[in-house]
Computed example of a mutant assay.
Amino acid sequence: MRPAPDETLQVRAVTTADLAAIAALHTGARAAYHRARFPDAPFDVPAEQARWHDAWSRDLARDDTPALCAARHGTVVGAASYRHRADQRRPAVTLHQLQVAPGHWGTGVGRALHSACLRAWRAAGFSRAVLDVLWHNHRARAFYTRLGWCPDPERRPAPDATHLTLTLDLSTAQAPPAPAGR
Rank of each mutant, 00 (worst) to 15 (best):
A180N: 09
A123W: 05
S115Y: 06
R35V: 06
R156W: 02
A41Q: 15
R62W: 04
A86E: 12
L25V: 10
R111W: 07
P91L: 00
L166N: 03
L98A: 05
G28R: 12
V100D: 02
A24D: 15
L166I: 09
A70P: 14
D63M: 14
V130C: 06
A61F: 08
D132K: 03
V14E: 00
R2N: 09
D64V: 09
C150K: 13
P151A: 15
L68I: 02
P177K: 07
R62K: 13
V133I: 04
S57Y: 01
A41S: 13
G106H: 00
H34V: 12
P159R: 04
T167W: 15
D160H: 15
P66E: 05
L118G: 04
L166E: 10
A124E: 12
A67G: 08
Q49C: 12
W135P: 00
V93G: 02
Y82F: 12
A142C: 05
H73T: 07
Y82R: 04
A13T: 12
D87F: 12
V100L: 07
R85M: 11
T167N: 00
H104T: 07
A116E: 07
D63G: 15
A31L: 03
H163T: 12
W105N: 02
G78V: 12
H34K: 08
E7T: 15
D18K: 02
P177A: 07
C150S: 13
D132F: 05
T165V: 15
G148A: 08
H73G: 14
A36E: 09
L68V: 08
T8L: 14
P3K: 03
L164T: 02
